[in-house]
Every structure is written in structure tokens, then in C-alpha cells.
Design a protein around this nucleic acid. Structure first.
Lengths: 332, 332
DNA sequence: AACGTTTGCTCAAACGTTTGATGTTGAAAA
DNA sequence: TTTTCAACATCAAACGTTTGAGCAAACGTT
């Protein structure tokens, strides 16, 4: 089944190829009856313009790439969903790529984007990423680049995040308001800017309430392999803990598991709160109170922003934050 | 920063455009020194062939589409991951599309694939999908089509699944072997072939062991909105239940939540087992015994098969199954 | 010396689309 | 009658790549 082209329609209608092209695009130069006829024939032949030919002519690829560290986590599927909705609406392709949390892979993916003439890239950087040279290169090639969620603050490439510090402080202050003041804060890979900011929020909230920061109550997970064991041990060692804060869903489920293995009851023995996409909290029992950080929302906001960058509406350097809110469930 | 073309290289090297093209492709007609020179200049200009031009010429798009009902579930992100790894390896694009479990959207997406000259499509059908006309249309246009996981058995379009009936029977028989014979079976949307097969497995296993099928012990969830409530009520009503089987992770977490709300203990009061991707079982406490159905494995197997179809290695009608295995954890 | 082959390259067409420039009508205005 | 100007349609070039055909010079063979 060969695909029909403008030429085929031209032959059947007796028009020239360019006439057909204009007819299909509703160009005013073409007589109304001619147009309807052309449209009919096009439909009959099941004609679709060849995107490659269009892209070749227009010199753009209509491709957006989303580069994420991983997708097998709670947050990223939602993020992807938010992005893809907007991208589809704009008639663009979305290709999605995974860096596996490795800088080298990330760089290779950027090169791939360059090769493929990608017009815009949304990227959550890997844990290893400590500079943005590869992204600057991409930007130089003319692509729009927007950092999302896991970002590296800088003043060359725009980024979109939540206020990580404030979101964390909110959670901590909520716990304090419930008289939980021995709060174990569990944080992800410390190389991430996000981790630094969330840790900062934890520290700030405690200080503001006149509490000391105890190293025992700060747990940073740098090794992905035995997260649950690390949490388990810490909880075992520091029996004074009466609340746990986790900075992500990934850590939340591990902490939950560790708490139950210790035979503790939520929330009676220990409270649990997390920054979360808002899915996992409902899987667990009791449902987990959390600071809602919607992946879908971030994704669609980011994609929308990217398209505004592409259309030149928004300067290529701007920095945005989206809101979060506390969801009170049964774990505090 | 404009992108350089063959013409630019031609000008700088004094060759013709076609000479440059051949040099870059290591065509034997070109003298070795010329080749190295051309390669140098290409590198210096940061040359990358324009994919649109290549595709236009070669008449293929190098695009694979993955159409999934949703991605915010446990299984599909993993599936996507498995697919994208293989697609990348083959130098193809992967675009991923969501049908939101609606047939109409699915049909639109297929039309979109046709428009975009997609070469191959991997699709998990929506719950509403009761015929494959749209896929046959796509196939007629020359695309390779493979149904995965949520399939509709037929003899025109190949599919790849697990042995749903057997996987379920395994789970049930495992429960029976542990003397749990009042098994509430919880199943997803009954329009899915997958649901029919898994229900069949449940029934078969019970019959084989001389047990009657009690309607009370069969719960089919057709309305996504209050899944947990439906499960809760059934468990409340039928107090004899001493084990629960769920056919998916989505149902597993709901059942888990309902069980705890009822104040029951796992596994003492009630056993819990599921067919699962193998992530969720470790989030819950105790960890949930399950029949492992790896999304990543299915994804990569499916993509590999699709490429074999594209290369003509495999006939366009063939039906495959991949294996599953029992993972014994603490819930039975 | 005559012929054939190889080497190393160029020409030109083709893929399907878009679009500025151009041409042919016919009719209204001068 | 000539000029003007729409209205409608065609021509041809361009986007960047690939590739069959062609060609000149150099070399090897008889």
C-alpha cells in the first residue's frame, strides 16, 4: 500500500502540484469548487502530507525531547504524562530518553538530540550532573532548553521547580505543630541541588523553632542499594524519633517498610510525612500526609513554558516556581 | 547557529556534494586521503546529516510508536523502559502515546501514526477496544503492529503476552497449598481479554482442586472510581475469606489498604497475593508474594520482536508468550 | 599501439513539500 | 479601444540527502 502524494492528487484533478498544495491549505488564490474537489480526492486517496518533506522544507523537526533520570519512580511517569499532553496539543512529537542517572549517558543523549535536530528539550538532570556544558552546546545549536524538577541553578538556562526549601519547611512545621519534635529527615542523593534545598528547608524550619540540628536525625541516602536497611538501622539506633520526613516517594515507601519491620505503629508511635506526587500516600496504610508535588502539573507547566520559549514569547533565561500544598491524611 | 550541510563541506573541500556524501559513507570510489579530509572538515563544522532529508529520501521515518492505555500505573513505566532501550539501540525514535483507556482516542492515535508515517507500533489496547479495525488499517498502510500485554486475541495481528490463565492458576494453587481455600479473586475491567483469561485461570485452579466457584468470592472491578470501597465492602460482607488474589498491582494496593482498614492482619488473618511487576510488593508490609510479570522484560521482548518483523525476519502473524515466576515473600 | 579496466570523481535526478514569481484569463474602468 | 486589476492556476526553485550513470585520466595487458 503506497502512500499517495500531491502528485497523485494533481494527476487525478488535472491541477498542478502547487495548485493542489494551495487548495489543501485553503489559499485564497484557489477557487472554492476547486478546493472542495481537491479535498474530496485527497480524502479518497487517504492522503497525508509526508512529514519529512514538510520538515525538510520548514527546517524544523517538530520534535521535543524529554530527558529523565529514570521513569520507574513515582514522580516521573506523571511528569511524562503532563508533558506529553501539551506536546501532543501543539502537534509536536515527544521523544523520551533516560539518562539512568549518569552524566555520560546524559551527554550522549544531548548529542543525539543535536543529531536529530530536536527543537526543544525538557530535562531533569542526573545525580552526577555538576555542570551544564552539554546543555549549553545544545542551546547554541538553537534548541530551547528547560530544566525541570531536578535542576542545577544557573543563569544561562531557565529552570522550573517547586520551592524545595519551603515545601520541606512546611512539612517540618506541620510536624512540629503536632508536637513531633524528634524528626528524622531522610534525603536523597546529596549531589542533587534539590537535596541541598530540601535539607536547607529542614534545617531552617528547626532553627526557626528554636531546635538544634542533630546529626543523628539527618539521614542522606547516597547509595541506592540498601535504602531500607539504612533507614531501618537509623531508626533502631535513635529510638527517640517520633516522626519521619522523607523528601520523595521513593524514600517514603522504604521508610514505611522499615517502620513496620521495627514493629512501630503509624501514627501512634511515629509520624510519617513526605513530599509526594500524591499516588503512593494512598497505597500505604494509614494514608500518608504529604506535601503534594504533582508531576503532571509540573510536566504540563514545563511543556507550556517550553513552547512559549520556542515561539519567542518568553526570554530564554527565566526561572519559575510552581506551588505545593499540604494534604493531611492519617500518618501524623 | 546554522547547521552545516553537505554543500558547506563541498565548498570547503572543493569536492562535489555527492563526493562528500560518498566520502562520509566510506564509499570505495573515494580516495582515502580525500575521505580523511572530508571527515575532518565535517567534524570541524559539526556536521550532522539532516534526518528529514534522509527520511525523505529513504522513504521511512525511523519512528516506532508505543501506545499505552495509561502510564501512571506500576506496569507501564517499566514496559516503556524496556521498549525504549531496544528502540534506542536500533537507532529509531520512540514516540509514546496514551489512549486513556478510550477506544476513540486510540483510533485517533492510530490515525496520527498513519499521518506520521510511523514504521512500527506496539500497543496495549484500551479497555473499550473490542475490535482491531483501526490496527488493520494501520497494518495495511505498511506498518508493523504488535499487541502487547493487554491484547485482543485474533489471527491477523500478532501479540505478545504472558500465559494469563496459567499465571493466575499458579497463584491460586500456591494459596491452596498453604491451606487458604476461601480465596477472594479480584479482577480488573471485564472487557479486557486479559481479565477473562485470568478469571479463567482462577476458576480452573479451583475446579481442579475440587472446589466450587462462589460468586461471593469473585469481584470484578468495572468502575475505576471507588475500587477500594468495593473491595472493602466485599471483605466486610464475606467474612470467611482467608486469602485475596488480585490480578494487578493497581488492585493489589487497593486491596492492601482495604484489608488494613478492616483491621485485619496479613498474613495471619488473611493472605494476599498478586500478579505484579515486582515493585509494589516491596513497598507494602509485609512484602507481598506475587507472580512476577516484569514490564521491562515484556517491553524489550516486544520491541525486539517488532524489529524482527520490520526486517521481515518474522512473519507478520505470530503469537508469543513470555514466562512468569512465583516470588514468595511475607504475605501468604 | 590499441584496448580494457580501475580509480576517483561529477552530474543530475529523485524523494514530497512549499512558495515567490509569473502567466493567462475575463471583466470592469477609462 | 486600451488599460487595469482581480481571480485562478502554473512554473520553477528550494530544502538536504542519496545514488545510478557518466566521464576523464591513469594504469595494465596483450
Amino acid at each position: 500500500m503506497k502512500r499517495s502524494t500531491l502528485k497523485d492528487i494533481a494527476k487525478l484533478t488535472g491541477l498542478s502540484v502547487s495548485g493542489v498544495s494551495r487548495a489543501l491549505k485553503n489559499h485564497p488564490d484557489i477557487a472554492p469548487e476547486t478546493k472542495t474537489k481537491v479535498h474530496e480526492v485527497a480524502k479518497a486517496l487517504n492522503y497525508h502530507p509526508n512529514p519529512s518533506a514538510q520538515f525538510l522544507h520548514s527546517k524544523n523537526s517538530k520534535i521535543i525531547a524529554a530527558i529523565l533520570p529514570e521513569v520507574n519512580t513515582f514522580f516521573f511517569p506523571e511528569l511524562l504524562q503532563g508533558i506529553s499532553k501539551i506536546v501532543e496539543q501543539h502537534g509536536y512529537f515527544l521523544i523520551f530518553l533516560q539518562s539512568d542517572n549518569r552524566l555520560q549517558k546524559e551527554q550522549e543523549l544531548i548529542d543525539y538530540c543535536i543529531q536529530m535536530y530536536v527543537e526543544g528539550v525538557l530535562i531533569s538532570v542526573s545525580a552526577e550532573t555538576d555542570n551544564l556544558d552539554h546543555l549549553l552546546k545544545l542551546k547554541k545549536m538553537g534548541a530551547a532548553v528547560l530544566l525541570i524538577d531536578r535542576v542545577l541553578k544557573n543563569d544561562e538556562i531557565p529552570y522550573l521547580t517547586i520551592d524545595d526549601s519551603k515545601a520541606t519547611a512546611n512539612a517540618i512545621e506541620y510536624l512540629l505543630s503536632k508536637d513531633r519534635n524528634q524528626i528524622l529527615g531522610i534525603f536523597d542523593d546529596e549531589r542533587l541541588t534539590m537535596t541541598k534545598l530540601r535539607t536547607e528547608g529542614y534545617v531552617k524550619a528547626l532553627k526557626k523553632n528554636g531546635l538544634r540540628i542533630e546529626p543523628n536525625l539527618l539521614l542522606t541516602i547516597n547509595d541506592d542499594f540498601d535504602i531500607e536497611e539504612q533507614i531501618f538501622k537509623r531508626l533502631e539506633d535513635v529510638s527517640s524519633v517520633n516522626a519521619v520526613f522523607t523528601m520523595s516517594d521513593k524514600l517514603l515507601v522504604k521508610a514505611y517498610h522499615a517502620i513496620y519491620r521495627l514493629g512501630l505503629k503509624i501514627p501512634d508511635d511515629i509520624a510519617l510525612i513526605s513530599i509526594s506526587d500524591g499516588k503512593a500516600p494512598y497505597y500505604l496504610y494509614p494514608s500518608i500526609s504529604h506535601i503534594r508535588h504533582s508531576g503532571e502539573e509540573v510536566g504540563s507547566a514545563a511543556a507550556t513554558l517550553l513552547f512559549r520559549m520556542l515561539s519567542g514569547e518568553v526570554g530564554l533565561v527565566s526561572f519559575h516556581q510552581i506551588g505545593t500544598s499540604l494534604v493531611e491524611l492519617g500518618s501524623v
